[in-house]
């Protein structure tokens, strides 16, 4: 049975695309046939994060409008042969994405892939609504920061009301998971940032993982590598564990900061 997973957040800039790239690459690394779809029509970015921006010929919208076959638009990842990317269009036409079109493409993808990861645009407009509408599970990406937590709460409300699973009687509701990103252990230690327990208490959904604030994330996006493939970084490791939990593995939650300060830094680092 294939699964459609939406990566969403409401707020922009919290790490949706980074997470969608990392999760899909992580699933593919485990051997699952995975496709990741960019739903951010007009602001294509997943292709850059995945490092395939120069190989885009046809896109999601071309497929929906019947101008290209799905097979033509899918880009096979060069590092993982179980991973494919479906880029979005740079068109400014907001109506390019239709509910029927999305459903048809997802149905076709379900026949071939184990996991279909939908990278939602920010906001709660059409693109975001369609990205979540057909989902079986949701990964809600949240920063430990007030506006992000508020928007995540709003999105959780939409996942429970404005989706196919919510509208169909008898269907199980969407399984939502919290992915806490840009987690800064140092600031949390100083009481300047909400910790995991604080956010969990407010949002009350199961925790998928905690991704530490990390220089590795920008480095990975600079070179077009999903950060999960950078297995030396703690952020990459944290994504790997989150992916394992997504597939049902029981892994203990370890929360680490990216930089482990040395003695010198611990003595003098505070003033820096």
């Amino acid at each position: 049975m294939s699964k459609v997973i939406v990566v969403t957040s409401g707020k922009g800039g919290v790490g949706k695309t980074t997470s969608a790239a990392a999760i899909s690459a992580g699933l593919a690394q485990q051997g699952h046939k995975t496709v990741v779809i960019d739903f951010d029509v007009g602001l294509r970015n997943l292709d850059m994060i995945m490092g395939c921006e120069r190989r885009v010929v046809f896109d999601f919208i071309n497929v929906i409008q019947g101008d290209a076959k799905l097979k033509q638009a899918l880009i096979k990842d060069r590092r993982l042969d179980t991973l494919s990317i479906l880029p979005t269009s740079q068109t400014r036409d907001k109506d390019a994405l239709t509910s029927e079109g999305v459903e048809k493409v997802l149905e076709e993808l379900r026949e071939e892939f184990d996991y279909i990861v939908c990278d939602s645009p920010a906001g709660i407009e059409r693109g975001a609504q369609l990205a979540m509408y057909y989902a079986d599970e949701a990964v809600v990406v949240t920063n430990p920061e007030v506006s992000s937590v508020r928007d995540s709460d709003r999105v959780l409300g939409l996942l429970n009301s404005k989706t196919k699973r919510a509208e169909e009687s008898g269907a199980d509701p969407i399984k939502s998971h919290l992915l806490l990103t840009r987690y800064d252990a140092k600031r949390i230690g100083e009481g300047e940032m909400m910790n995991v327990e604080d956010v969990l208490e407010i949002l009350a959904i199961p925790l998928l993982g905690v991704i530490p604030e990390s220089t590795a994330v920008l480095r990975a996006s600079n070179v077009g590598l999903p950060v999960v493939l950078d297995d030396k970084s703690r952020a990459g490791k944290a994504y790997e564990e989150a992916v394992a939990r997504l597939t049902g593995e029981q892994i203990e939650m370890r929360i680490e900061s990216e930089e482990r300060p040395g003695l010198f830094q611990r003595l003098f680092g505070r003033t820096a």
Partner: peptide, 20 residues
């Protein structure tokens, strides 16, 4: 100072209780 996380949490709890 340095306990702003607690303030953030309390503000959110009050706001979301209303928004929900």
């Amino acid at each position: 100072k340095g306990k702003s996380a607690q303030t953030a949490k309390e503000r959110l709890q009050i706001l979301l209780a209303h928004e929900r």
